[in-house]
Amino acid sequence: MPFDLKELSKEKDLFAPGHRACAGCGPAIVMRQIMAVAGKDTVVGFATGCMEVVSTIFPYTAWRVPYIHVAFENAAAVISGVEAAYKALKRKGKINKKINFIAIAGDGGTYDIGIQALSGALERGHNFLYVCYDNQAYMNTGIQRSGATPLGAHTTTSPAGDVIPGKVQWRKDLTEIVAAHGIPYAAQASPSHWNDLMEKVKKALETEGPAFINVLAPCPVGWYFSPERTIKIAKLAVDTLFWPLYEVENGKHRITYKPRKPKPVEEWLKEQGRFRHLFQEKNRWIIEEFQRQVNERWERLLRLEEASL
């Protein structure tokens, strides 16, 4: 049953306007889409990052649900504590209603500095959803490379120079790392496919135990594209198979959207200034390597899906 935008738009946005995200901000779209499903009985625990900074500049907050930010690397630990308190207080009869607990962090706070706290919280089995808005670099501090930055991308700490052509490593496959914890639900989503994303959020929140969603969140400033292209670029990431939409439910992989005719990854790369240098003749090999990696990972995903049947 698809989500009805007519119904969703009747509710007050739980991520209010007046936040200071850049025009065309992908992560801000992700926040709205998540919160439209989560509803008001939700506590959000946030990691330091661009969305934290733009949404809560004292005395203004964009949040219409209870929100707590503590530091960069500990969103999963903080939400563990909130959830533990909820359980304890519920047991003592001090609170009754059902509350969703969502930790939100960028790729810096998830792939890199926060991976330990995330792994711990997943292993302990807290009842929460962790959402990573993956804009593929440390955007808050000004576009530094992260474990999520793709091969070849120019960032301010993996600059495309005369000798080194941007980031020379492939990105971590965090969704699979998380899924390997054996948690009940892990998924990958994109705001371009909003209904798919919302269904995943709904499923994740209905899951008993830890759930994780890795959401691609294009950043016009950090990826160097014009702000109206955010959704197009998210969609291209899916259609080129760079960012497959899939879920891992109780260990079973299921691809939730299969592009009928996948596009070459070059079409996604050429839209973004951070990959511009790859189109120089001497760097073309990186695009080929990129395509090879995308193909290999997609085929692996297909095999995982097949094995799950």
Binding site: L5, K6, S9, D13, P17, H19, A21, C25, R32
Partner: peptide, 18 residues
């Protein structure tokens, strides 16, 4: 269709009763 509403980063599409 309200795609504008679902994709707006700034909750700046005014929708009344769909």
């Amino acid at each position: 269709c309200l795609f504008c509403w679902v994709f707006c980063p700034d909750s700046s599409i005014i929708v009344e009763n769909g």
